[in-house]
Design a protein around this nucleic acid. Structure first.
Lengths: 205, 205, 205, 205
DNA sequence: AATGAATGAGCATTCATTCAT
DNA sequence: TATGAATGAATGCTCATTCAT
């Protein structure tokens, strides 16, 4: 009985292996969800693309919905974690920074962007709860920025900050959607100018 | 066992009857598609709500997709048919008029609006073709307005008119989507000011 | 528009056809459930044996459990419906008559008997509710017979009639189970004497 | 990457440790099998309840069935080992003693009793072999007692001793089953009088 | 034209079993 | 020995579509 600490975690794969498998599943999920939507996505395909058996997904995610919302939450986490505001930045500058981050994320991971931008609006019924939960932190961040902007008089005060936050996200997504369309002449580079020139010009100041 | 069960109609139905049945199916389809999306909608429910048998739908529409896109096309037809431009109207006025029409249609038929606004962006793959076809006339109308506006120098000229048309529709939908959300403080009345103040201010002139 | 009563039921198959299909499914279900138990039975097999597609079962029964309990209830209904008591029959005679009926039903339909006798005791958890509901009328009948017997002093009074009813059914099933076993020397003809000689001799009078 | 994850025991475990682990698995198995039946039991749950990993079960038992029948055999072993017959005891006294032992075992281990009493009858097909093997010694014991009773003229001679033995076990189980039912007014204390008064009175002498 | 029973492909999910560590 | 991640066969159930009446 000497020598063997029996209370060490008896893992069979290392944390990095587990994490890698999980990431492969997530990556494959992004592709499939982007291509077929939540309802149309098939676990068979995701598992196959990830190089695993179908059952393996259930070692990492409870259900198809769980994998989907993990992906959406991942997007939201990146957005919130990446946001750093400079001292004395205006509401407009901060909103633009969020938009810039979002575009940056989309540029790195087009499938992720397609999932978030195209699929979320169409989710109805029970799935709405999952959507709201998953993107909640992003909405919270935007709301905080807008509240501060309203207090400084930079953002129009007639509407609640939360409503304006959701509106901002909706419109940002709408512009990105066009930019991501395969037959569009717009590219991701055009998103920020459009957000600033078209949308923020009316919302702030 | 004498007697034949005459359980099938033996006469042609009148054109008005046929039309009425078709409309009942469309109306029931709007409700179901709005509530569950294209993938989640069930023909059983649509038929039941319309007061018909499931098989009857196939006497009027080739498939679930066909019914869906008929509904979308119906929206588009209303939009295009309702548009009347005054002599000498500016691009901004004309775009606002289209937005006003769209809001008016949404107000009359919330389910139709939910189908168009929420479901269309999520359609991917083969369905994209159906989407483009169904909303084509609307895009064409907007494109024509924008082209004329660009020729008169009212609309920014850096982008193709078609791209701007799709962008306009996207953003209009995004704003309406927030306005239609059940927990939103925004209403349909707020859409036009937002389109004008936020978006058109940057797009035109 | 003359001549066609549009409010006649628009059935596509006659009631007898529907009933026949339903019965084929029930018969195939009996075989499969008897051979593999509720958990092990496969809908594929039942449908195949009945000469139908898998989905057809769902036009007649909500779920595997529903088909199973329909079968059990069918047994119970036969038992209750077949019971006719002679004037002035003693409790012992009535209980024997019920046992005789049960043996008769088993003789006509061995698979049905195997389902009821072998499978019911092993159902646990949520399934217990289904069991109690399905065999309720049989228990009620036995209880009524025993209550009357207790009032006439023919049945021992120390226990509740309902408990004795369930005990009677348990023991009857236990004896039949042995009689149905493939390698048993006992046959169904031996059940009644055993019930009377061994069990009722202690229970009544 | 220096350091080897010593997450596996490197020493043999002692016989007592092995035995304790085995017993924990058996105990957990009793609970799970009693609650869900053989088909419905999950190895995950058994392992979790026993404080081990799922794979560990396979170091002790070949399969789910093997664990199940080990449990059943354990019951049978207890029954046979506990039986001590007094000199000159009658068949009735010896059968009652076996019943008493069975009730005693059930009282000590209700889950074990539920497994044996409720689950065994429902096992069909290939599983029957396992059942017969597992309870064989118990049947042998009963058969020996009955054979001797028949030779002394105490037990009715029309049926084979083995058949009567199985019948006795069936009926004993049926009575215990009612006594174990959660909503029954009968308790385990009522089993012996019922076996004696109702059943043995007819079977012996 | 209308019906609705029948169909069967399709799919998410479960879980006993294996095996590399 | 112990582990638990990986596996993949198995299966209940759904539902768009067909078609005989």
């Amino acid at each position: 009985m000497w020598g063997i600490p029996h209370n060490t975690p008896m893992v069979r794969i290392s944390a990095s292996e587990r994490s890698a498998t999980r990431q492969r599943l997530i990556d494959a999920g992004k592709v499939e969800f982007a291509a077929r939507g939540l309802a149309g996505a098939r676990f068979d395909e995701i598992a196959l693309a990830a190089g695993h058996a179908k059952g393996t997904i259930y070692n990492y995610f409870d259900s198809k919905e769980a994998l989907f919302f993990t992906i959406v939450k991942d997007w939201c986490t990146q957005l919130v974690a990446g946001f750093v505001t400079a001292n004395g930045a205006s509401a407009r500058e901060q909103l633009l920074e969020i938009a810039r981050l979002d575009v940056e994320i989309a540029r790195k991971d087009l499938d992720l962007a397609r999932v978030v931008i195209n699929q979320l609006p169409g989710l109805v019924g029970d799935h709405r709860v999952g959507v709201e939960t998953a993107i909640g932190p992003g909405i919270d961040l935007l709301t905080a920025v807008i509240v501060a902007g309203q207090e400084r008089g930079e953002v129009l005060a007639g509407q609640s900050a939360r409503t304006l936050a959701r509106l901002f996200l909706n419109v940002l997504s709408a512009i990105e959607q066009e930019a991501l369309a395969s037959d569009s002449e717009l590219g991701l580079d055009d998103v920020l100018p459009l957000v600033d020139g078209c949308f923020l010009r009316g919302l702030v100041q």
